[in-house]
Design a protein around this nucleic acid. Structure first.
Length: 456
RNA sequence: GUGGUUGUAGCUCAGCUGGUUAGAGCGCUGGUUUGUGGCACCAGAGGUCGCCGGUUCGAACCCGGUCUCCCACCCCA
């Protein structure tokens, strides 16, 4: 049998101890924040029935779903004629489950299935991996974590405000300072399409306009023309493209620009209300950037939309979300509106790495390593180990009776700050020698004083 | 799904127009130092040059295929 080189599936990663410490730092910050704002945790299975997942993300999305082959003889229902009809016809016969593509759809499914137990408004957060069969590239993986927080069952704009507050808190705690939270409202985009005389085509308008900062106004014009937007409409859109100034100025401009669109004005008003509530709460508008051309692809958004971009890094958006009117409609429960957003931990990690924001020292390292010279010292060490752990000190005993040098090298490599040296003298006198690795200084203390000495 | 790119030691990479036994740095193991790490010096282990086929007296190098990695597009976190 030949030995095969192990490898990982495309777009997946291992997380080593250092990466895990860092990821947990991010994850814990996010989790703490969600809890502080009254969100409760939910987990759903990695796999869902394919019928739950398909048709929720558009044709492209269905392509990107990982499907799970049925167990056993998965070909038993497939006829030769099915194969001729193509993959779309065979798929439901060989696969009835798929891996979760995002956390929103499973959440919607959960809400519908538990509608009688849930009291609304329902605030939940969910931190789990999702899978997409997309081609990986920078900042893009086939398995990655999402950290979603959603509130369903209320139209209050307080939810939007709280999303902004949570984003600000998380980024402040992570030490990311140069970022902007772009905000817009789908109603404004609807209004725009009305005002330029292309009513009802905001979806297409969004797709094109969303690329503005990437490909520039010239190319966006081309794309709009390609999508059969009239030259007149494109021309009418022009003033919007160059709009800048403070958020108030932008909103004032929008008010006049959208004066003939009732929906558009409503969108503006909602944004104004959000900023007003934010001010009452006592929070500044720092990092907040009303962005008229922010569109976001997801079609189910109907109100506010958010996107967070960290400046001066090569990574795309690290967080985003918005309000939707009818989350659960496809599962037969109408009238559940909500608003939600998601942190992309993997991208936040990449951003922090690129900016060098991770704390230098490993946060959950062993504090004390017990070293010894022989079996007697090892056994004495075992007793001392118990004392240390009883006191809640992260500690370990070197497991082999071996050269002292090897033990110290181990401590050094693992960045353990203290080493206990246990030899004959220490054993006879019931003492321990504490060596401080950084300075090299050491001191012998009685066992009774050991804990106190290390904790100080 | 489309286009491009990469593959040589555990890691980062050299390797000339095809020419004997494929190299370096870092890391690893051992030693200088049998109760003391980092630094230094010395020694050592470690490679089917992604895989398969072809051209050639001869291939890490040229050609074809395949896999893989990464990057861009589409879309997205």
């Amino acid at each position: 049998m030949s030995i095969q080189k192990p490898s990982l599936p495309k777009g997946t990663r291992d997380f080593g101890p250092l990466q895990m410490a860092r990821r947990n730092f991010i994850l814990d910050t996010i989790k703490d924040t969600f809890k502080l704002f009254g969100f409760q945790q939910l987990e759903t299975p990695s796999m869902e029935n394919l019928s739950t997942l398909t048709g929720k993300y558009g044709d492209e999305g269905d392509q990107l779903l990982f499907k799970i082959l049925n167990s056993g003889n998965y070909l038993k229902d497939v006829e030769a004629t099915d194969l001729e009809k193509g993959t779309a016809h065979v798929l439901p016969k060989v696969s009835e489950k798929g891996l979760r593509y995002d956390l929103t759809v499973p959440f919607a499914r959960y809400v519908v299935m538990n509608r009688n137990e849930i009291t609304f408004p329902f605030k939940r957060f969910q931190i789990q991996p999702v899978w997409r069969a997309d081609r990986p590239q920078k900042g893009r993986y086939r398995e990655f974590y999402q950290c979603d927080a959603d509130v369903v069952g209320t139209d209050s704009l307080l939810c939007e405000v709280e999303i902004l507050l949570m984003i600000k808190r998380v980024f402040a705690q992570l030490g990311i300072s140069d970022y902007s939270v772009k905000v817009n409202n789908r109603k404004i985009l609807t209004g725009l399409s009305e005002v330029i005389g292309e009513q009802g085509r905001e979806g297409e308008l969004c797709v094109a306009i969303d690329k503005l900062d990437k490909i520039g106004w010239e190319k966006v014009q081309e794309e709009l023309a390609q999508r059969n937007f009239s030259a007149d409409a494109v021309k009418k859109l022009e003033p919007i493209i160059g709009v800048n100034g403070s958020n108030e100025e932008k909103l004032a401009f929008l008010k006049s620009f959208l004066s003939t669109s009732e929906v558009g004005l409503q969108g503006v008003q909602e944004l104004e209300e959000v900023t007003r509530l934010l001010t009452i709460y006592g929070e500044s508008q720092e990092h907040l950037d009303v962005d008229v051309v922010l569109a976001r692809g997801l079609s189910y958004y109907t109100g506010a939309i958010f996107e967070v971009k960290v400046n001066n890094v090569s990574i795309g958006s690290v967080s985003g979300g918005g309000r939707y009117d009818n989350l659960t409609g496809v599962f037969g429960l109408d009238g559940v509106s909500g608003v939600g957003f998601s942190f992309g931990v993997d991208r936040i990690y990449d951003v922090m790495d690129e900016l060098g924001l991770f704390p230098q020292e490993n946060l959950d390292q062993t504090k004390v390593l017990i070293c010894h010279f022989d079996q007697a010292g090892f056994e004495y060490g075992l007793k001392v180990l118990q004392l240390l752990r009883e006191a809640g000190i992260r500690s370990e005993l070197f497991p082999d009776v071996t050269k002292f040098k090897k033990q110290l090298t181990y401590a050094d490599k693992k960045n353990v700050p203290y080493v206990l040296v246990l030899g004959d003298d220490e054993l006879v006198n019931q003492t321990a020698t504490i060596k401080h690795m950084a300075s090299g200084k050491q001191e012998t203390v009685a066992l009774g004083a050991l804990i106190e000495q290390i904790l100080e």
